[in-house]
């Protein structure tokens, strides 16, 4: 017979089992691999990119894919492959970091409000309502005016908006869970509130949270494109997938490859995220079948 190692208290076997289950899920594994490759390529881009992302070659102009430029060049003669690789650095970083910020704040805020309830809940959720009501653009512009233009600020701004929905989702989950008998059992066991939230409440909210997270990452990437397009995000000649797609749309009829390749990259990322998210959700639910 096999018993868990002594460290089972730290390494919850929920996560261990989830990892084992995830590895058996081909689609999820595919998603995981694609994301991993994209991340590694992004990290190594400064060393492996075939061209410089900012050097223009106006003589060359927009050329379709060729042996020298696999994905063609844009209207300034810059190599698209290079620009997509550099764009991935920004997009993936914004996507993951801003979502992580939203995730942490949202889960903590939502679970505390939902679990404590009463007046604390009322105050916390009114704060969320007020944040919802703030016009997003004014909020961003205010941040820019006060702190200056900064890529970190972009994360903060997007994270500050995205956590609101997360908090609401988590709160409603927690309110339903709070009444469950196993939570009452944890109470009667003498566990502190924080231990109950951490060990019994949060793991049981993971299903919807993961699904929402996989939806948030792409929406954050597009939000970054929108902000950058308005000149509030990253600045040219820097690039991101969202920006490349925006510019690609403008010249879609003459130079379709400027839209197609960044579009494919973003879609591939979204597919990978969704497969991984679905796989994670099933893996983290012991009730989902094991095969």
């Amino acid at each position: 017979m096999q018993m868990p190692s002594q460290s089972s208290e730290q390494h919850s076997s929920l996560w261990l089992d989830a990892w084992i289950k995830l590895r058996k899920n081909r689609m999820a594994l595919f998603g995981f691999t694609v994301l991993l490759v994209l991340c590694v390529v992004s990290l190594l881009t400064p060393w492996i990119a075939p061209y410089s992302y900012e050097t223009q070659d106006l003589m060359l102009g927009a050329t379709p894919p060729s042996a020298a430029h696999w994905l063609g060049t844009d209207i300034f003669g810059r190599d698209m492959l290079t620009r997509i690789m550099y764009g991935g650095r920004v997009s993936l970083m914004v996507g993951f970091i801003a979502t992580a910020v939203a995730l942490v704040i949202g889960i903590l805020w939502g679970s505390i409000a939902g679990f404590v309830g009463g007046r604390v809940d009322a105050v916390m959720m009114r704060i969320v309502d007020i944040m919802y009501a703030l016009p997003f653009m004014i909020f961003i512009v205010l941040l820019m005016v006060v702190f200056g233009r900064n890529i970190l600020l972009l994360f903060v701004a997007i994270g500050a908006v995205e956590w609101l929905t997360m908090a609401r989702i988590v709160r409603s989950q927690v309110m339903a869970l709070r009444k469950q008998e196993f939570v009452e059992a944890a109470y009667s066991m003498g566990l502190s509130r924080w231990a109950i939230i951490r060990r019994h409440i949060i793991p049981n909210t993971l299903g919807p949270v993961i699904v929402y997270t996989t939806l948030t990452i792409p929406s954050v990437m597009l939000l970054e494109a929108f902000l950058s397009f308005l000149g509030l995000g990253i600045q040219p000649p820097q690039s991101s997938w969202g920006l490349l797609i925006n510019y690609g749309v403008e010249t879609m009829e003459e130079y379709p490859w400027l839209l197609i390749f960044p579009g494919i990259t973003l879609s591939l990322t979204l597919f990978a995220l969704n497969f991984l998210g679905d796989g994670l959700r099933d893996a983290l639910d012991p009730r989902a079948s094991k095969d």
Binding site: S8, S13, L14, E181, F182, E184, H200, D285, P286
Partner: peptide, 15 residues
Amino acid sequence: ASLNPRMTVYETLAE
């Protein structure tokens, strides 16, 4: 309803 669905028997009893 009285057992946490995401904890194994071992974890439930060890807690």
